[in-house]
Nucleic acid binder design. Structure first.
Length: 934
DNA sequence: TTCCGCACGC
DNA sequence: GACGTACGTGCGGAAG
């Protein structure tokens, strides 16, 4: 296959420059070597990953010809190239030459024109063409079959986008229209002036209406207000912009296939160049990865060190995770893929479908509903699939009595323990069906969770999975119900034929995804975790969400009034002290008052958007100077409490149950933790007295119930001790010591009883830092102490807990060699950047490497405990319910006579979720509200 | 509508 | 010496 890459040279240099501009490196002659390095990196990635047969770097020259005389004006808008960058250009040319890559100069035309024209000609000559001009990802929309090679923001990975994806992003069917937009205003290509006040969105709408830029201008009298004014005033500029941004496909350049051939890299040219530029790491990569040669000793490559400055052995770089299988050339979709989607809308067809499904061992299903809140919506239809490219759709009547009757026909099917159900995010479907008195049973296969285990850091929605793993682009839901927002339609109003295609396709795709993921789960050793933890947990979470929790509306309403009063009082005080009325909730205005008007801190820092920083730490530091800062902190706390909790919680009470039903997301947190939303029950305040009040509003079901809260004590630290086998820490836990006090005693070299609250607080912060993968910087921030001091504490910590340091080193080495780390139960997290040449990016991966096994193991542990507790409740026919999970805490609505029995089960199951040497401690409490129970 | 700054929990 | 430093969710304000 002939594979051609066309790269815009100047744009690439600029891109490399900007990517590294925060930390540029220079030679003594003032050459910007960062830019050269970034450029080299890009070339290396392309050659290594894409193996092109033909390639060229295109440079535009500065001298404009007849193409656009306006071009000179446009150039004038551009900033002159910084001197350090222009000095880098000769080196860039040497790199290109060293790689054996041909150069083309555009001779008066924009590089995009040359690339566009060559791409078009090459396409006709049978090439697969990739263009890389980073100005804008759509700047190369020249043909359906030409791909855009797009550098990603972080690291060196790049993504390839085909024209259909770019179009999808713009939600427009017609390429010409897109080009028209591109040629239009404002942001199309940087530095082209466009028409002020008319952004991409407006331009899109206008062009849809009037057909082209020219059309819009001709019809400007139909517009009104500022828009009309701008279009008319800047009409000429708009046309020029379009001309400039339009890519020529007929520039005077011939496709000389031989001249575009990629030749082999030249060690003779590259080696001295890299030595001169001191490119150690990238040099090493070029020689080992591209030329497959030994590292030349002449370069004297430095040792790479670990977090503690110790040298590490560099393992061979490996591919970390299988790339999803997909041929970028062919994206399948419903129109080009043969399929049989049946509509089952008569008694006969429904009976036939039920018969078919009943006799299969496994089926895939999906439900279409009126909204996203599982506890508050109606089923519009159900779709089923048992084999690829074939599916059924069953419309469900709007009349809820008829709907219930129809769905009840499927009840035995869903409740059949022996039939496996496949779906995407099954918890949702299970919950929805629950409201129709269908209690799903049997083995499950949730494709979302499967992918979550395979690659927890990425996204898991079905559309993306389908495109990545099946090379199939599903019908978008927005094509049925419109785009998000208040105008978004409802499934109920969509034509049945359209829903049928959409819904049946969903079930079909999901089933196909199962086929892809099932073997992958096996090869990545995630079977057990999937089968024994995540899958059973679906039922547990569904039950918890269905159960919900009772909220004391009256208490919250009273508290809201009290907060409001206090806020008003504080507000008045603040206005008095500031001498001006302003919006305290606006960080922008607040910053101006504090630092411009009151001049509280002449050195006040600003955020990247140019506002003054007014965060918690800034105001705290200010509070000794002026008590206005303290007042502002107080008022913020109260406003936060009021808006996020006190006033919002009652709004989430479900009218049908009178309770609040949170939703747990099982597939977002990359470490394996759950997250919760609507409401987020996992961030209900606890630290401050006023915050704690909110917890009083979480109450038992009725007077016959009581809330029980069970908390793991120091679970993460116990797991660190367990995993690292650090003797000192294991000892401390074995003796039942307070771990932070014990840590302080060790770190400061004093007796336990000599530890004061300050030392304990420091030790606690280090312990937390370890859990969260913090650095010395993070620690110094959280303790508000100098970095050096923080570093000293950390160093002594590692001296005392040498087993932990050893564990960290081992984990990091494991990650470097294998590309992933894992928890006690084998939950993996892939760390693509663990061997990255970029220190920041690598540091990020390194912290994750330490942190993921710990947090993840704790997550595993509580998940297992939840499953066992749920099962025990069921086996022992208890009426008490588990209602909430907050990372290391479980909350139960207990029928009072069952309290002792429940406590026994909970303690037993939590302590013994997995076998450990380090004792696991569970603290329990009960009471008439969450605060009392805690 | 989208982004930002901020704040809450673990 | 500079870089930029757990993860989530959700609020209000500001800007387009």
């Amino acid at each position: 296959m002939k594979k051609l890459f066309l790269l815009d040279g100047m744009a690439l240099i600029y891109r490399a420059h900007f990517a590294l501009s925060k930390n540029p490196r220079f030679t003594s002659d003032g050459v910007n070597t960062s830019a050269v390095m970034g450029f080299t990196n890009t070339l290396l990635e392309i050659l290594k990953k894409e193996s092109p047969t033909h390639i060229a770097v295109v440079f535009d020259t500065e001298a404009p010809t007849e193409r656009h005389i306006e071009f000179t004006d446009y150039k004038a808008h551009r900033q002159a190239m910084p001197e350090d960058l222009s000095k880098a250009i000769p080196y860039v040319f040497r790199v290109i030459e060293g790689f054996g890559i041909p150069v083309i100069t555009s001779d008066g035309y924009e590089a995009d024109d040359i690339i566009g024209t060559l791409a078009k000609k090459a396409e006709i000559a049978g090439y697969t063409v990739f263009c890389m001009t980073p100005d804008k990802d759509f700047a190369q929309l020249v043909s359906e079959n030409i791909f855009v090679y797009k550098p990603s923001r972080m690291g060196n990975d790049m993504e390839i986008m085909g024209v259909p994806e770019v179009l999808a992003k713009w939600e427009i069917e017609n390429v010409l229209q897109v080009i028209d937009i591109l040629g239009m205003w404002g942001d199309a290509v940087d530095n082209i002036p466009g028409i002020p006040g008319i952004g991409e969105k407006t331009a899109k709408l206008l062009i849809k209406q009037f057909g082209s830029v020219e059309g819009v201008i001709a019809n400007s009298h139909l517009l009104k207000g500022k828009m009309k004014e701008n279009v008319e005033k800047f009409a000429e500029q708009g046309l020029v912009s379009k001309k400039l941004a339009t890519i020529l496909l007929n520039a005077p350049v011939e496709l000389d296939e031989d001249a575009l051939l990629l030749s082999s890299p030249s060690r003779e040219l590259l080696e001295p160049l890299f030595a001169e530029l001191e490119f150690r790491t990238i040099g090493r990569r070029v020689f080992t990865e591209l030329l497959h040669e030994e590292i030349p000793p002449i370069l004297g490559y430095g040792q790479q060190t670990d977090l503690f400055g110790q040298p590490v052995a560099l393992p061979e770089l490996k591919t970390l995770i299988e790339e999803p299988e997909q041929d970028p050339l062919v994206m399948k979709n419903i129109e080009n893929t043969p399929h049989t989607y049946h509509l089952a809308d008569s008694p006969e067809t429904i009976t036939e479908l039920i018969n078919i499904l009943s006799s299969s061992e496994s089926f895939c299903f999906d439900s279409e509903t009126t909204c996203l809140d599982a506890n508050n919506c109606q089923i519009v239809g159900l779709s089923f699939s048992i084999k690829t490219n074939e599916a059924w759709y069953v419309p469900v009547p709007e009349d809820q009595v008829l709907a219930a009757a129809l769905i009840s026909q499927f009840k035995p099917l869903f409740e059949n323990e022996n039939i496996e159900k496949t779906g995407q995010n099954l918890k949702y479907d299970i919950l929805v069906l629950n409201w129709y008195d269908v209690h799903v049973r049997g083995n499950l296969f949730d494709t979302m969770l499967a992918h979550y285990l395979l690659d927890p850091d990425t996204r898991h929605n079905m559309d993306i999975l389908s495109e990545n793993y099946l090379g199939y682009k599903p019908v978008e839901i927005t094509s049925l119900i419109g785009s998000k927002g208040k105008n978004q339609g409802n499934m109920r109003d969509v034509e049945i034929e359209l829903i049928k295609e959409y819904a049946a396709e969903d079930a079909d795709i999901t089933l196909q995804l199962k086929g892809v993921f099932e073997p992958k789960l096996h090869t990545s050793n995630a079977d057990a975790l999937f089968r024994n933890v995540e899958t059973p947990l679906i039922y547990v979470l569904a039950d918890m969400e269905r159960e919900g929790v009772r909220i004391d509306k009256v208490a919250l309403a009273e508290y809201s009034i009290q907060l409001e009063t206090d806020i008003r009082i504080l507000e008045t005080t603040i206005y008095e002290k500031a001498g001006v009325r302003f919006n305290i909730a606006s960080p922008k205005q607040l910053g101006e008052v504090l630092f411009d008007k009151l001049q509280l801190d002449p050195k006040a820092k600003k955020t990247k958007t140019g506002q003054y920083q007014t965060g918690e730490d800034v105001l705290s530091a200010l509070s000794n100077k002026s008590d206005i800062a303290r007042d502002i902190l107080d008022i913020r706390q109260l406003q936060k409490l009021k808006s996020t909790y006190v006033d919002s919680l009652p709004l989430l009470i479900n009218p049908k149950t009178g309770r609040v039903h949170t939703s747990y997301n099982q597939a977002v947190a990359a470490t394996g933790r759950l997250s919760s939303n609507n409401p987020n029950l996992q961030n209900i305040p606890i630290r401050t007295e006023r915050g704690r009040e909110v917890r009083k509003a979480f109450i038992p079901r009725d007077e016959n119930h009581i809330l029980l809260s069970a908390d793991y004590s120091q679970i993460e630290l116990r797991l660190i001790a367990e995993i690292s086998r650090d003797e000192n820490m294991m000892d401390a836990f074995a003796q039942g010591l307070d771990i932070h006090t014990a840590t302080a005693a060790k770190v400061y070299g004093i007796a336990l009883e000599e530890v004061d609250s300050n030392k304990r607080r420091n030790a606690k912060a280090v312990n937390f830092g370890i859990i969260y993968g913090q650095s010395a910087f993070g620690l110094s921030q959280s303790l508000n102490i100098p970095r050096k001091e923080a570093a000293a504490i950390i160093e002594e910590y590692f001296n005392q807990y040498s087993g932990i340091k050893q564990y960290m080193n081992d984990t990091m080495n494991f990650a470097r060699e294998n590309g992933y780390v894992q928890t006690l139960m084998g939950r993996r997290r892939y760390l693509r950047d663990i061997n990255s040449a970029n220190a920041t990016v690598r540091g990020f991966a390194e912290r994750n490497a330490i942190n993921a096994p710990i947090q993840g193991s704790a997550a595993d542990l509580i998940k297992v405990a939840m499953i066992h507790i749920h099962q025990d409740f069921r086996d022992q026919k208890l009426e008490s319910k588990m209602t909430m999970q907050v990372h290391d805490e479980l909350v139960f609505d207990v029928v009072i006579p069952e309290l002792e029995q429940v406590k026994m089960i909970v303690e037993n199951r939590m302590k013994n979720a997995i076998k450990t040497t380090v004792p696991i401690l569970v603290e329990m409490g009960s009471g008439t509200n969450w605060l009392k129970a805690h």
